[in-house]
Amino acid sequence: MKISALLAFLVGAVASNTVLAQAGADSVRQIEKYRDALMDGNPADLWEARGEELWKRVRGPRAVSLEHCDLGKGPGVVKGAYAELPRYFADVDKVMDLETRLVYCMTVLQGLPRGEVLRRTFGDGSNRSDFESLAAFITAESKGVKMAVGMNHPKEKEAFKLGEKIFFHRGGPHDFSCATCHSESGKRIRLQDLPNLTDEKDAQRAYTTWPAYRVSQGELRSMQWRLYDCFRQQRFPELTFASDTSVALTMFLARNANGGVFNAPAIKR
């Protein structure tokens, strides 16, 4: 064992010409191994269970459950719904992503006050967010389904085009845009691989693995959170939850991932 490991090391060292590069490649491999080990027993299950209970719970002044909520495939249909979001909803004449639609259903269908609904959009320690729980449950019902986001309605096309502009918008003290980190293939920040979100395969791999349980945070994080925290690191002001900007950007990312098989909630470092 020891000899073969040493040989592998030597071969690697010769092939890459420097011991340093070998050490770097080894770190990457170790991270891959860590990721594999995490796959079993994904704590996202805990959020899924809570989300399912929330989906079925009768709530609000109008005393209805979210099972009457139409995510685009008819009231109460959850199976495969996320793989077609964001989409145009005729009842509001707008394009909505999952969270935007959930806010709509909670306020209009269940009659809950908007302020109460939006009180905790992201979980924080032992305080869980209903949105992250619902996102875990609803997205899990699209596991194995191919992403199929439509662009037939003019407003869907508009959202995509606006999302593209936002993706490439440079600003802030660091001159960063989403594209600064996500428009070239094979790049990383520190040891973190960066998906090229303008490349079909990379975009599919990235989009289909959100939401994800983040081991480093002990939280389940949704696409809405991913965008929020990317903008924080981009040194932008704070992105409003379920805003039109978030929907447009999600539309751009989701559409670029079309054809990819959805595989979340995933688990990430």
Binding site: L162, I166, H169, R170, G171, G172, P173, F231, R235, F236, P237, E238, L239, T240, S243, D244, T245, S246, A248
Partner: peptide
């Protein structure tokens, strides 16, 4: 859209969206 959908927080004001 961005002007309406970002909120100033801490040292990050909305002027950061300008180019």
């Amino acid at each position: 859209l961005m002007g309406a959908d970002f909120k100033a927080r801490g040292q990050a004001g909305l002027d950061r969206l300008n180019q």
